[in-house]
Design a protein around this nucleic acid. Sequence first.
DNA 1: CTGGATCCATAAGGATACTG
DNA 2: CAGTATCCTTATGGATCCAG
Lengths: 121, 121
Amino acid sequence: MTSFLPDPYDRDCPTRQLLDRIGDQWTVLIVGTLGGGPLRFTEIGRRVQGISQKMLTQTLRALVRDGILERRMYAEIPPRVEYELTDLGRDLAEPLSMLAEWAKAHMGRVQEARESYDRAS
Amino acid sequence: MTSFLPDPYDRDCPTRQLLDRIGDQWTVLIVGTLGGGPLRFTEIGRRVQGISQKMLTQTLRALVRDGILERRMYAEIPPRVEYELTDLGRDLAEPLSMLAEWAKAHMGRVQEARESYDRAS
DNA sequence: CTGGATCCATAAGGATACTG
DNA sequence: CAGTATCCTTATGGATCCAG
């Protein structure tokens, strides 16, 4: 395993740009939630437990802007808006799911490490 | 592609825990930098461009606590401290490198999407 | 239902100075 | 060299109210 940062000295390298984007706590959860198919605004909010309406709106807009999500609005009363992963978004969901796999497999060990560390302190 | 969140309703699911941990902007960069082998404190700071000394210290300590990094101190003058990925850390580096690959391959399209979005606004 | 706009508390994080 | 401690500014993000 070698360093996977193309150029750690460069603040503008793609890896870093992506991290700036997904490092906001909610992006990954939303993309993950939409991996199962399109969902409405309220439904996403309900699934991503703990997100405020403000952050939901903000993050969704940012993701649409980035071409990760597509926003479809239906002129109904009451209004219905659905968000869905674009091809680009579905592609991103792939490496993210790898992360989730790692989490499921190894977060137990992390927890143990923490407790052990804290006992030693 | 289905949703990769084991239980989005659960704030304590492993995926979420991991995201809380790596969502801090520096963790991923540090783990990535150490993918090439052990490095000294100052050297990590130099490679992870833009990180402050405070965040470097803080993040390194958290990663050691989580069992991702090992800290080795040599009783020399001047002191020398090296950080190295543990097996667990090297394992984490794998899915992270997938993310980096995605970034290199697709961030260009994201950039285009942003410009297109901004023009339309 | 799907947001927009504001206000406000808290926390993240940079700059700086200091220490073994 | 490898941190620690402090101050202080900024950004994050929740709560609340309003609107189409």
